[in-house]
């Protein structure tokens, strides 16, 4: 960790450059630039409406129109349809979890196609989230918020994705569940997953992340490394308006 950045710099897994995104008439992203190395855990920090969620959506192609460049694992994806992009090994956990209400928990788990090798088996997933095993026949709509969040995370682990985009996974959940999610995310990082977190709960991510990208008005305006965090806490708090 203390080695100079040039030596330990991991292979680049994702490079976003000059990314613009649009919904109908609204122009949401105005040239987002950042890159993430293999095995890194980074966050996108910013106030509501700054464009963090749209950045994640744009990476998987979930916006009406996007321009610029999104390179995943060396492949330019800007012209690809969404169902091709994630097959480069991306797992997307959307805001509000995106659990299919008319599918059982297990159907929610197994409906995602495999996008890479080495995904977890159902048994491994049920070992990690025992609640889901108990509720596997329940329709998605009957699961609690915490169970839905576990499911939303678990289902992308089964696909073999190595790059995880996690949008507000702690939102609206009880502290004990937030702690469990924190442990889960840390375990995933230790297993070598590359993770981009969009998170409102700064305390949740402060100790987890390698780097923080500060997002404002549809751009990445600054980067804060793990080591700089303490010294810049005050300006960060001001930036986030907390």
């Amino acid at each position: 960790m203390s080695a100079p950045a040039t030596q330990s710099a991991p292979a680049e897994l994702l490079r976003v450059s000059g990314l613009h995104a649009f919904y109908g008439e609204s122009h949401i992203l105005h040239g987002v630039d950042f890159s993430v190395g293999t095995g890194e855990l980074v966050t996108l920090l910013g106030r509501n409406g700054s464009g963090r969620t749209t950045t994640l959506k744009s990476i998987v192609g979930l916006v009406e129109k996007r321009t610029g460049s999104v390179v995943v694992n060396g492949r330019e994806t800007i012209a690809m349809p969404p169902h091709r992009i994630v097959h480069l090994g991306i797992g997307y956990c959307p805001e509000e979890r995106g659990i299919f209400a008319s599918l059982s928990a297990e159907e929610n788990l197994t409906i995602l196609p495999t996008v890479g090798s080495g995904g977890m088996s159902l048994d491994e997933i049920y070992g990690m989230f025992p609640n889901l095993k108990e509720r596997r026949r329940s329709p998605g709509s009957r699961l609690s918020g915490g169970e839905q969040q576990m499911l939303a995370l678990a289902r992308i682990l089964r696909t073999g994705a190595r790059l995880l985009l996690l949008d507000e996974i702690t939102e609206g959940l009880a502290p004990v569940i937030v702690q469990a999610l924190g442990r889960a995310v840390r375990a995933l990082k230790d297993r070598g997953y590359t993770i981009i977190l969009v998170e409102q709960n700064f305390r949740f991510v402060a100790s987890l992340a390698d780097r923080h990208f500060l997002v404002e008005r549809g751009r990445v305006v600054d980067v804060v490394g793990r080591g700089e965090l303490e010294g810049r806490m005050e300006s960060l708090q001001r930036f986030l308006g907390v």
Partner: peptide, 19 residues
Amino acid sequence: AYLRAGTENPKLLQAFGVN
């Protein structure tokens, strides 16, 4: 299940890699 999921949210299903 694909049909039900697609009926609920086709865009999200596509973002999970389903054609």
